Amino acid sequence: MPYSSNFPPNYPFQHLVGRWTNRPLPNGSNNEGGQSNPLSYNVMPLPQNSPQPNQPNYGYILKNFTYYETVQFNDRSAVATPVNAPNRGGNYTQNSFALFYDQQVHFAEGPAVEQIVHEENGAWLYLTTAAQTIGPYSKNGTEPGPVPPQPEDIEIAKQIAVPHGNSILALGSVTHGTGSPVIPDTPPPFAPPGLDSAPFEELLNSADNYQNPQPELTRNPNKALQQAVELIRPNAYIHWRVTTKPLPSGKGIVTNIPFEQRRANVDDYEADYWLLSTDGGETFPFLSYSQSIFMSLTIHDKPGYLFPHVTCNTVTKL
């Protein structure tokens, strides 16, 4: 376990430190999981008032595609791993252990193959409680307490900064398991009531209609993850889930710049991550995730149409 002396007890993110990208997966063929044939998918609706050539005007279009990515989780050479940012509460402290990341995503198919489609950075936080020191510089002992435990349903958080002008803070929890995780199907991401779902169902039929290249994955983006898990054949895993929706002990939040508020406001975010091991939990060299961003789009100048924007991928640690 890298840099184990820097990690607090039960720290769930220590296996993330390093660089991850799409690599051919074990037991696969035809470069499955690699950059030329990634087991990934993106379902992305876009508001569009003007129709494409020879296409009906649905008020929105799709930009669906497979993709490959690189994610760098900070290492000791750049920043201490993890960073602890204590939050004082008066009579006890919440410790926030932060692991920073940078992500860059490329198209794996379509007219813009290999071009960058997305970048973001942020931090994974692991939250614990502890006695609060007395005085500004920890020289006078600690408060007598008591110290309540950190609520288990909000023991982790994900902070996201997206250059479209969106900031997300999602909360959640971590579980450990043996065997292979069950990756659920994704709810079919179709258009909301009042709009035609034809773009989600149509095949790619012309160079001007590069919207839905893989309808089977559009119907269930998580099929890409299910295929990856079948190839990897894990025997242990770490699963964590975060959401901006209300949990028993708290709620996350999303903020957007004014243009996005009017045209493509992000309302909610949720994501599942699975670290996968093939040696019984000694190492976890594979990472699968599925995230859903819920956006209120303005269609034909009418706001409030809620669309899911789904992304999922499996990457390998270098």
Rank of each mutant, 00 (worst) to 15 (best):
M1E: 06
Y3S: 04
S5L: 07
P8A: 07
P8I: 09
P9C: 00
Y11H: 06
P12T: 04
Q14Y: 06
Q14C: 15
T21S: 12
T21I: 04
R23D: 00
P26T: 09
P26L: 02
N27S: 12
S29R: 12
N30L: 14
E32H: 11
E32I: 02
G33W: 02
G34F: 11
Q35R: 06
N37Q: 05
P38R: 02
P45R: 08
Q52M: 14
Q52E: 14
P53M: 02
Y58V: 00
Y60C: 11
Y60Q: 14
Y60A: 04
Y60W: 15
I61Q: 10
I61L: 06
L62W: 03
N64S: 04
V71F: 07
F73M: 05
D75I: 13
T81L: 01
V83S: 08
N91V: 05
Y92I: 05
Q94E: 11
S96A: 00
A98W: 02
Y101Q: 13
H106E: 01
P111V: 01
A112T: 08
V113L: 03
E114K: 08
W124V: 01
Y126V: 01
Y126K: 00
T128N: 01
T128S: 11
Q132N: 10
I134D: 04
I134C: 02
I134K: 13
S138R: 13
S138Y: 07
N140M: 01
E143H: 13
E143F: 15
G145S: 12
V147N: 11
V147H: 08
V147G: 14
P149M: 06
D153I: 07
I156K: 05
I156A: 08
K158Q: 07
P163N: 04
S167V: 10
I168H: 03
L171W: 05
L171A: 01
V174T: 14
T175F: 12
T178S: 13
G179T: 02
S180V: 00
S180A: 12
P184L: 10
P184D: 13
P189T: 03
A191P: 15
A191R: 02
P192E: 05
P193I: 02
G194F: 12
S197N: 13
S197D: 10
F200Q: 11
E202F: 09
L203I: 04
N209G: 08
N209A: 09
Q211I: 01
N212H: 08
P215I: 01
L217H: 02
R219A: 06
A224E: 04
L225Q: 00
L225V: 05
E230M: 10
I232T: 11
N235G: 04
N235H: 10
A236P: 13
Y237W: 12
L247C: 07
G250S: 15
K251F: 04
P258V: 01
F259Y: 11
E260R: 15
R262K: 15
D267P: 00
W274K: 11
W274P: 10
W274T: 07
L275I: 03
L275Q: 15
T278V: 06
T283Q: 14
F284K: 14
F284R: 11
F286N: 03
L287V: 03
S288A: 08
Q291V: 07
S292M: 05
F294G: 03
M295V: 11
S296N: 09
L297F: 15
T298G: 01
I299L: 09
H300M: 14
H300K: 14
D301Q: 15
D301R: 14
P303C: 05
G304A: 09
H309C: 03
H309P: 13
C312H: 00
T314A: 00
T314K: 15
T314I: 09
L318Q: 08
